[in-house]
Amino acid sequence: MLSQSLRARLLMAPALLWLTAFMVVPCLLILALGFFRRGIYGGVDYTFTFENFRLLADPLYLGIFLHSARVAGTATLIAVVVGYAAAYAIAGAPRRWQGMLLFLAVLPFWSNYLIRTYAWIVLLNREGLITQGLRMLGYEGEPPSMLYTEGAVIVGLVYNYLPFVILACYAPLSRLNPELAEASRDLGAGAFTTFRRVVLPQTLAGVAAGAVFVFVLSIGNFITPALLGGGKFQMVGNLVYAQFLTANDWPFGAALSMVLIAIMMVLLMAQAWGTAKGMGERNG
């Protein structure tokens, strides 16, 4: 008979091996790459240096990080507000409709990310569907410039990641005992206070999970800024992409990636820790 813990370890072994070989080791390699010099003709010159990480503090690159964080943060904020409202409406719909509504909310996921983003180009470009629509309504002036703006990037990010927020918020909302809101009303609270003090606190874990998801996926995203932001608009993802594929500066690209990965790790761990703590309080 195998002991319980040995069996557990054996069952986990394939997954751990896989993650080590294809996740941890490559990450360490990239991290190591960050401490070398760029070769004069591209490639890597294997002499140790902190130069790449020091370069990150350069206002140019720091600015791109902060800008990315702001764009990702705005997208997160909008996605959370819109997604929470949608999840709230779905959770409040008759039971037999909820499955269908969730399915519809997640439906875009079944098509390719690139195609979905291209669809926004069709909508937003100067003679796109939105402009044509305005023309049909009698609008005669200059077509609005919507594509290749920060707004377009944010719209693209929100659109792509909204389903995560809806799913993450729907789960706790659908489990909420409706009598809790009634009890709050009965004790003298208005609708808004009931939401703020009773409904929201019990669904915060879902909000946090959805928000971290959107933020982490957005800040590292490079397809949406490239397609909807145009070439002029750079986020960290585009910068990393450029270092590896056009500038041929792999060590600096590696350093940038590590910082990005570190930001994501911190957020994901904070969220996991927060959820575990919340659960511990509930069960303790």
């Binding site: 005992n177 009598e179 809790l180 009634e182 009890a183 709050s184 009965d186 009773v198 019990q202 509930r282």
Partner: peptide
């Protein structure tokens, strides 16, 4: 008027 709910409906948080 106040109601004591059958499920008690205590706020868990």
């Amino acid at each position: 008027v106040n109601l004591m709910f059958q499920s008690y409906a205590l706020f868990p948080h």
